[in-house]
Simulated scan of single mutants.
Amino acid sequence: MKYLAPCLALALLATPAMAQSVGEKTGINSTLGIAPRTEDFVKQVAISDMFEIQSSQLAQERGDAADKSFAATMIKDHGKTTGELKSMVSEGDLKMALPTELDSTHQAKIDKLKSLKGGDFSARYQLDQVSGHKDAVSLFERYAKGGDNPKLKEWADKTLPTLRHHLEMAQGLASGKTVGKN
Protein backbone atom coordinates (compact mmCIF):
# COMPACT_ATOMS: atom_id res chain seq x y z
CA MET A 1 0.00 0.00 0.00
CA LYS A 2 2.81 2.43 0.82
CA TYR A 3 4.15 2.02 -2.74
CA LEU A 4 0.80 2.68 -4.40
CA ALA A 5 0.93 6.50 -4.24
CA PRO A 6 4.48 6.84 -5.66
CA CYS A 7 3.70 4.35 -8.44
CA LEU A 8 0.50 6.19 -9.30
CA ALA A 9 2.36 9.51 -9.33
CA LEU A 10 5.00 8.09 -11.67
CA ALA A 11 2.34 6.70 -13.97
CA LEU A 12 0.63 10.07 -14.14
CA LEU A 13 3.91 11.87 -14.78
CA ALA A 14 4.66 9.55 -17.67
CA THR A 15 1.35 10.10 -19.46
CA PRO A 16 2.27 12.06 -22.60
CA ALA A 17 -1.26 12.63 -23.87
CA MET A 18 -2.10 15.18 -21.21
CA ALA A 19 -2.44 18.82 -22.25
CA GLN A 20 0.14 19.73 -19.64
CA SER A 21 2.30 17.24 -17.82
CA VAL A 22 1.41 16.59 -14.20
CA GLY A 23 4.94 17.50 -13.14
CA GLU A 24 4.58 20.98 -14.62
CA LYS A 25 0.96 21.43 -13.56
CA THR A 26 1.65 20.51 -9.92
CA GLY A 27 4.92 22.41 -9.63
CA ILE A 28 6.96 19.27 -8.98
CA ASN A 29 9.22 19.97 -11.98
CA SER A 30 9.92 23.48 -10.72
CA THR A 31 10.68 22.27 -7.21
CA LEU A 32 13.05 19.61 -8.53
CA GLY A 33 14.57 21.90 -11.19
CA ILE A 34 13.42 19.63 -14.03
CA ALA A 35 13.12 21.16 -17.50
CA PRO A 36 9.56 21.32 -18.83
CA ARG A 37 8.56 19.45 -21.95
CA THR A 38 8.62 21.70 -25.00
CA GLU A 39 4.82 21.60 -25.25
CA ASP A 40 4.45 22.63 -21.60
CA PHE A 41 7.02 25.40 -21.96
CA VAL A 42 5.37 26.90 -25.05
CA LYS A 43 1.88 26.69 -23.51
CA GLN A 44 3.01 28.29 -20.26
CA VAL A 45 4.92 31.06 -22.00
CA ALA A 46 1.93 31.90 -24.22
CA ILE A 47 -0.47 31.95 -21.27
CA SER A 48 1.95 33.92 -19.12
CA ASP A 49 2.36 36.53 -21.86
CA MET A 50 -1.42 36.79 -22.32
CA PHE A 51 -1.84 37.26 -18.57
CA GLU A 52 0.91 39.87 -18.36
CA ILE A 53 -0.61 41.86 -21.21
CA GLN A 54 -4.23 41.62 -20.01
CA SER A 55 -3.43 42.38 -16.36
CA SER A 56 -1.19 45.26 -17.40
CA GLN A 57 -3.91 46.69 -19.63
CA LEU A 58 -6.13 46.71 -16.54
CA ALA A 59 -3.33 48.36 -14.56
CA GLN A 60 -3.16 51.13 -17.13
CA GLU A 61 -6.85 51.80 -16.46
CA ARG A 62 -7.00 51.25 -12.69
CA GLY A 63 -3.48 51.45 -11.29
CA ASP A 64 -1.53 54.29 -9.78
CA ALA A 65 1.27 56.08 -11.65
CA ALA A 66 3.90 53.46 -10.72
CA ASP A 67 1.59 50.61 -11.80
CA LYS A 68 0.93 52.36 -15.11
CA SER A 69 4.63 52.85 -15.82
CA PHE A 70 5.42 49.23 -15.00
CA ALA A 71 2.39 48.05 -17.00
CA ALA A 72 3.54 49.92 -20.13
CA THR A 73 6.84 48.05 -20.00
CA MET A 74 5.07 44.71 -19.47
CA ILE A 75 2.74 45.25 -22.43
CA LYS A 76 5.64 46.20 -24.72
CA ASP A 77 8.04 43.45 -23.62
CA HIS A 78 5.51 40.61 -23.37
CA GLY A 79 4.03 41.65 -26.70
CA LYS A 80 7.51 41.22 -28.14
CA THR A 81 7.98 37.72 -26.68
CA THR A 82 4.51 36.73 -27.88
CA GLY A 83 5.48 37.84 -31.39
CA GLU A 84 8.73 35.89 -31.23
CA LEU A 85 6.96 32.74 -30.06
CA LYS A 86 4.30 33.08 -32.77
CA SER A 87 7.05 33.53 -35.33
CA MET A 88 8.75 30.28 -34.27
CA VAL A 89 5.42 28.45 -34.62
CA SER A 90 4.55 30.00 -38.00
CA GLU A 91 8.03 29.32 -39.39
CA GLY A 92 7.65 25.65 -38.46
CA ASP A 93 10.31 25.62 -35.74
CA LEU A 94 7.61 24.47 -33.31
CA LYS A 95 4.99 22.00 -34.42
CA MET A 96 2.15 22.99 -32.11
CA ALA A 97 -0.70 25.41 -31.74
CA LEU A 98 -0.49 28.25 -29.27
CA PRO A 99 -3.30 28.64 -26.76
CA THR A 100 -5.70 31.43 -27.64
CA GLU A 101 -7.12 32.02 -24.16
CA LEU A 102 -6.03 31.97 -20.57
CA ASP A 103 -6.21 28.82 -18.48
CA SER A 104 -8.67 28.84 -15.56
CA THR A 105 -6.03 29.85 -12.99
CA HIS A 106 -4.93 32.94 -14.90
CA GLN A 107 -8.50 33.84 -15.89
CA ALA A 108 -9.49 33.76 -12.21
CA LYS A 109 -6.64 36.20 -11.48
CA ILE A 110 -7.88 38.55 -14.23
CA ASP A 111 -11.44 38.29 -12.90
CA LYS A 112 -10.21 39.13 -9.40
CA LEU A 113 -8.29 42.16 -10.71
CA LYS A 114 -11.40 43.35 -12.57
CA SER A 115 -13.29 43.37 -9.28
CA LEU A 116 -10.76 45.61 -7.50
CA LYS A 117 -10.04 49.34 -7.50
CA GLY A 118 -7.54 51.73 -5.97
CA GLY A 119 -5.08 50.39 -3.43
CA ASP A 120 -6.69 46.94 -3.44
CA PHE A 121 -6.14 46.71 -7.20
CA SER A 122 -2.53 47.89 -6.95
CA ALA A 123 -1.70 45.47 -4.15
CA ARG A 124 -3.12 42.48 -6.06
CA TYR A 125 -1.58 43.52 -9.38
CA GLN A 126 1.83 43.91 -7.77
CA LEU A 127 1.56 40.57 -5.96
CA ASP A 128 0.54 38.86 -9.21
CA GLN A 129 3.49 40.44 -11.03
CA VAL A 130 6.06 39.28 -8.48
CA SER A 131 4.61 35.78 -8.39
CA GLY A 132 4.23 35.52 -12.17
CA HIS A 133 7.76 36.70 -12.86
CA LYS A 134 9.25 34.32 -10.28
CA ASP A 135 7.45 31.50 -12.08
CA ALA A 136 8.56 32.77 -15.49
CA VAL A 137 12.22 33.04 -14.46
CA SER A 138 12.11 29.48 -13.11
CA LEU A 139 10.40 28.19 -16.26
CA PHE A 140 12.85 29.89 -18.63
CA GLU A 141 15.90 28.89 -16.57
CA ARG A 142 14.84 25.25 -16.52
CA TYR A 143 14.11 25.17 -20.25
CA ALA A 144 17.30 27.04 -21.15
CA LYS A 145 19.32 24.43 -19.22
CA GLY A 146 17.51 21.25 -20.21
CA GLY A 147 14.95 21.83 -22.96
CA ASP A 148 14.95 19.58 -26.01
CA ASN A 149 14.43 22.14 -28.80
CA PRO A 150 17.76 23.90 -29.53
CA LYS A 151 16.25 27.05 -31.05
CA LEU A 152 13.74 27.39 -28.20
CA LYS A 153 16.48 26.78 -25.61
CA GLU A 154 18.54 29.58 -27.14
CA TRP A 155 15.51 31.89 -27.15
CA ALA A 156 14.74 31.05 -23.51
CA ASP A 157 18.33 31.82 -22.52
CA LYS A 158 18.30 35.09 -24.49
CA THR A 159 14.99 36.14 -22.87
CA LEU A 160 16.04 35.39 -19.29
CA PRO A 161 17.84 38.70 -18.55
CA THR A 162 14.69 40.64 -19.45
CA LEU A 163 12.53 38.42 -17.24
CA ARG A 164 14.96 38.74 -14.35
CA HIS A 165 14.83 42.51 -14.78
CA HIS A 166 11.01 42.37 -14.81
CA LEU A 167 11.13 40.42 -11.53
CA GLU A 168 13.39 43.04 -9.96
CA MET A 169 11.09 45.78 -11.21
CA ALA A 170 8.00 43.97 -9.85
CA GLN A 171 9.68 43.46 -6.48
CA GLY A 172 10.60 47.15 -6.40
CA LEU A 173 7.06 48.11 -7.33
CA ALA A 174 5.63 45.92 -4.58
CA SER A 175 8.03 47.39 -2.01
CA GLY A 176 7.11 50.93 -3.01
CA LYS A 177 10.36 51.80 -4.77
CA THR A 178 10.34 53.83 -7.96
CA VAL A 179 10.12 51.59 -11.00
CA GLY A 180 12.15 52.56 -14.04
CA LYS A 181 11.16 51.75 -17.57
CA ASN A 182 14.38 49.83 -18.27
Rank of each mutant, 00 (worst) to 15 (best):
M88A: 12
G119Y: 05
K114N: 12
V137Y: 05
S138G: 06
A108F: 00
A72Y: 02
S131F: 00
M96E: 10
A136G: 05
S90R: 14
A97K: 10
Q107Y: 03
D120I: 03
L102Q: 13
E84F: 10
G132E: 00
S122D: 07
D77I: 04
A65H: 08
S104A: 14
S87H: 08
G63H: 06
D64R: 11
I110Q: 04
D64E: 11
G79V: 01
H106S: 07
S87A: 13
K109P: 00
K114R: 14
K86H: 10
K134Y: 02
K76G: 11
M74P: 13
L102T: 04
K134S: 03
D128C: 00
K117I: 10
A66W: 07
G92R: 04
K109G: 03
E61W: 03
D64L: 04
K109V: 02
P99I: 08
D120M: 10
G132S: 04
A72L: 11
R124G: 01
S87Y: 10
G63N: 06
A71G: 00
M96H: 02
S138Q: 11
A108K: 06
A71P: 03
L139G: 02
M88V: 09
T81P: 10
A123F: 02
A136W: 05
S122T: 08
A97Y: 05
M96I: 08
K68Q: 14
K117W: 09
K95S: 15
T81E: 13
T73P: 07
G83N: 05
K86T: 15
M88N: 08
H78N: 12
D128I: 00
Q60K: 13
K95W: 08
A66S: 13
V130A: 00
E61K: 05
Q129I: 00
V137W: 03
G83L: 10
S90F: 09
D64G: 13
L116K: 02
K134N: 11
S122N: 08
A108R: 02
S115Y: 02
I110W: 06
S104K: 15
A123V: 02
H133M: 07
D128S: 04
D67V: 08
V89R: 01
K112V: 08
E84L: 14
L116D: 07
D111N: 12
K112T: 12
K80H: 11
I75W: 00
Q107V: 01
M74Q: 00
T73V: 15
D64N: 15
E61T: 12
G63K: 05
K80D: 15
Q129L: 01
D93R: 14
K80R: 13
T81K: 11
S69K: 14
A97D: 15
L127D: 15
F70V: 02
G132Q: 01
A71F: 00
S115E: 06
L98A: 12
G118A: 07
E101K: 15
P99L: 03
G79M: 01
S131M: 04
L113W: 03
S115R: 03
E84G: 13
K114T: 04
L94C: 05
T105Q: 11
D77G: 12
A108M: 03
T81I: 10
R62H: 14
K86N: 09
A72C: 07
L85G: 09
L116H: 03
K95P: 09
L127S: 15
R124P: 08
I75P: 12
A123G: 05
T100N: 14
G118F: 08
S87G: 11
G119F: 09
K117L: 10
H106W: 09
L113I: 03
S122G: 02
H106A: 04
